[in-house]
């Protein structure tokens, strides 16, 4: 039944000051606990009764060091779980080494929300249109998942399992997003299409990332948002370009492949046909932009 609550339900709020304490709370309460980062997804969902009220909300903001953003030429970029979208977007390191990530984050929500929300939270909420996801997919990010029992590294390509579903278990937290250093001669672009210029959901998001050897593409990664139950890598489009030069023809072929492979839903946000058409347009634009950028 539809309800029209305006305020939050009652729950306990805990603010642990160490990761161990947080993990122990999650281990104890399991499905009854919800970790709180920026809260820009959790709070509206709980308020609207879109999810059952948690018994305990575990606020991660007081855990020292979780918001670190570090870069090392060999290890690449590490984003702490509590790094806000705004801080990642504005990080000099990110702008220098991963400009496509910075650009993708700029398309998200409003400045106020970006100041509050975290990149990790965007990934954990796991909506198909998550704007950070296609970029993290093509950058082949790896997520560090930690629980009281231990830790595991999960490539982001294996993280999403369905709309708002991931491999993350109730007692686990993502503590780091690790993004390898982009290979030399690589270029990446994220393009987002939404009805309005700002503060809007992607109808389609396309991330393209190409590594070239001379003029041929020796690695091609294309990821799509909002056109499948999860953000996805688009293997057929990628292989259409692999080993080829970036030309209008090869780009066209890859864009067509991406468009014919995607399986979006038909809903009030956009019709399936339009989303597929836009995958074609955006993939072509992204690849053309890469082609035209000087290496």
């Amino acid at each position: 039944m539809t309800t029209f609550y305006r305020r939050l339900p009652r729950f306990d709020y805990v603010q642990p000051t160490s990761l161990d304490e947080a993990l122990s709370l999650l281990g104890r309460y399991k499905a009854d606990a919800k970790p709180l980062a920026g809260g820009t997804d959790l709070i509206p969902q709980v308020k609207g009764r879109d999810m059952a009220a948690p018994r305990v909300v575990v606020d991660l903001k007081a855990i020292p060091g979780l918001d670190a953003i570090t870069y090392d030429a060999t290890k690449g970029l590490t984003l702490g779980a509590m790094a806000t979208i705004a801080n990642v977007e504005r990080s000099v390191l990110v702008r220098e080494h991963y400009p496509m990530l910075s650009n993708a984050l700029t398309t998200m929500a409003s400045p106020q929300v970006r100041n509050r929300a975290t990149v990790t939270g965007n990934i954990c909420t796991a909506v198909p249109s998550a704007d950070s996801a296609p970029t993290l997919l093509v950058l082949e990010a790896v997520l560090k998942l930690v629980s009281q029992k231990g830790e595991r590294l999960v490539p982001i390509t294996q993280f999403f399992t369905g709309p708002r579903q991931t491999v993350l278990t109730y007692d686990e937290l993502i503590t780091e997003i690790r993004i390898p250093s982009p290979p030399p001669k690589s270029r990446g672009v994220y393009l987002k299409l939404s009805p309005r210029k700002s503060m809007d959901l992607a109808v389609v998001g396309v991330a393209a990332f190409v590594v070239r050897d001379g003029e041929t593409c020796k690695d091609v990664r294309i990821a799509l948002g909002a056109v499948a139950p999860t953000p996805i890598r688009e293997a057929r489009a990628e292989s259409a370009l692999l080993g080829k030069k970036l030309t209008d023809e090869s780009i066209e072929e890859a864009a067509s492949a991406a468009s014919s492979e995607c399986r979006p839903i038909d809903d009030h946000r956009a019709a399936r046909e339009y989303r597929c058409d836009m995958v074609y347009v955006l993939t072509r634009r992204a690849l053309t932009q890469i082609k035209e950028e000087a290496l």
């Binding site: 009805p195 309005r196 210029k197 700002s198 503060m199 809007d200 959901l201 009030h268």
Partner: peptide, 9 residues
Amino acid sequence: DYKMPRSTD
């Protein structure tokens, strides 16, 4: 989802 134009539009 009810798309009123934003100030940027």
